[in-house]
Amino acid sequence: MVQIGYTMMTEQAGPRELVEHVAGAEEAGFDFSVTSDHYFPWLRSQGHSPYAWSVLGAAAHATSRIPLMTYVTCPLMRYHPAVVAQKAATLQLLAEGRFRLGLGAGENLNEHVVGRGWPGADVRHEMLAEAVGIIRDLFTGGHVTHHGRHFSVDSARLWDLPGEPPPIGIAVSGDQSCALAGRLADLVIATEPKAALLDSFDRHGGTGKPRVGQLPVSYDPDRAAAVGRAHEQFRWFGGGWKVNAELPHPDSFAGATKYVTAEDVAESIPCGADPAVFVEAVRPYVDAGFTEVALVQIGGDTQPAFLRWASETLLPALRGEFR
């Protein structure tokens, strides 16, 4: 049976609210949770972007069952991989083994803030492979010294290590990232229900590993309100990673999506309160072979109502359909 997850969307709520939301998701019966890790929101209308790792630490303390995961952290520029390893090891200890480290090649939106420019995708994938190697070496204990093409580490060591290191997931969008994930990751991450991505992942060593997808949804008893909110806050989602990774600012996303209509958004994001519509939106992920699907409820102030509805109506419908 596919597992259904909940997304702490840091771009649409403040830190205290996010922790309350994931505690509510645990109570509602979600199987796992994921957390975005951004410096900017995608659009100004979302209005937030707290530091994800502080939120995750508080979430680990506020929950006891629900797994936590970054979706995803970029260990290339804003964070050095040695620091990511320390953060992930600490989170795994706080969460008592419930944490997974999702990694990706990042977006200009978040990484440009440190002033190092924005390399092309080929270089970013080289950097990601090197970063994963550093993180895994540090997870084994002992001192690590590394002088590679993109990163240097000088006698680093993690002094607080969990008994089991967090599994590492890698986000994919094409053959190059799938090859990297198949070779280096414990699980694969994607935001599109494309079987071709999972097939490529399997060809490069991913067979049998978990595969996690993500789907934005907009629950509201008033469907028109749900569509309007999805358009206001999530019309950027359809651009795909190869476009979204390159834009540097929320205003860039606003400009790039100014001709996207509410009807366009409603065609790709389930809106309203009919659980059958949401079930059918999840189906392509299940058919493609995803083992886990994290839902993103659009709108920070709508989370409590969504969680109640999910507990009473949506999760039973999904589990009844995808046993």
Rank of each mutant, 00 (worst) to 15 (best):
Ala226Tyr: 03
Gln3Arg: 13
Leu184Pro: 02
Arg98Pro: 09
Gly117Arg: 09
Phe278Val: 08
Gly14Asp: 13
Gly213Thr: 04
Ile269Asp: 03
Val22Ala: 01
Tyr285Glu: 03
Leu101Glu: 06
Gln303Tyr: 10
Gln46Ile: 00
Ser177Glu: 07
Gln303Ile: 02
Tyr219Arg: 09
Val243Arg: 12
Ile189Ala: 03
Pro248Cys: 08
Val217Ala: 06
Ser64Asp: 13
Phe234Glu: 02
Cys74Tyr: 03
Arg235Lys: 15
Glu26Thr: 06
Gln233Tyr: 00
Glu111Ser: 09
Ser155Lys: 15
Gly106Gln: 09
Val83Thr: 12
Pro50Ala: 09
Gly255Cys: 05
Gly141Ala: 06
Trp159Ala: 11
Leu91Trp: 04
Val19Thr: 04
Thr207Pro: 03
Glu11Pro: 06
His21Asn: 12
Leu180Pro: 01
Glu321Asp: 10
Gly320Asn: 14
Ser311His: 13
Ala121Leu: 13
Ala185Glu: 07
Pro166Asp: 04
Gly206Thr: 08
Arg223Leu: 06
Tyr39Val: 14
Gly106Thr: 12
His150Lys: 07
Ala131Pro: 07
Asp220Ile: 07
Gln92Thr: 06
Tyr51Ala: 13
Val34His: 00
Pro210Glu: 11
Asp301Tyr: 03
Gln297Glu: 13
Glu96Ala: 14
Arg149Asn: 11
Pro210Met: 10
Gly272Thr: 11
Gly240Ser: 08
Leu158Ile: 15
His38Ser: 08
Ala60Arg: 11
Ala95Gly: 14
Arg183Leu: 09
Trp236His: 13
Pro216His: 09
His38Gly: 08
Arg235Pro: 06
Arg235His: 10
Tyr51Ile: 12
Leu198Tyr: 04
Val282His: 01
Glu96Leu: 09
Val72Ser: 02
Arg229Pro: 05
Trp159Met: 12
Phe99Glu: 02
Glu232Lys: 14
Phe290Ile: 09
His249Arg: 12
Gly24Tyr: 07
Arg308His: 14
Ser45Glu: 15
Pro15Thr: 11
Leu138Ser: 00
Gly239Trp: 01
Pro166Trp: 06
Val114Leu: 00
Asp37Gly: 04
Leu18Phe: 04
Gly47Val: 03
Ser54Asp: 15
Pro248His: 07
Arg44Lys: 13
Gln176Tyr: 07
Ser268Leu: 11
Asp274Ala: 12
His147Met: 08
His147Ile: 13
Asp122Thr: 15
Arg183Ser: 14
Val172Asp: 09
Leu94Cys: 11
Leu187Gly: 00
Gly14Thr: 08
Pro193Met: 05
Ser173Lys: 02
Ala245Ile: 00
Glu312Thr: 14
Arg78Met: 04
Arg308Gly: 12
Gly300Pro: 05
Leu103Arg: 09
Ser173Thr: 13
Ser152Pro: 01
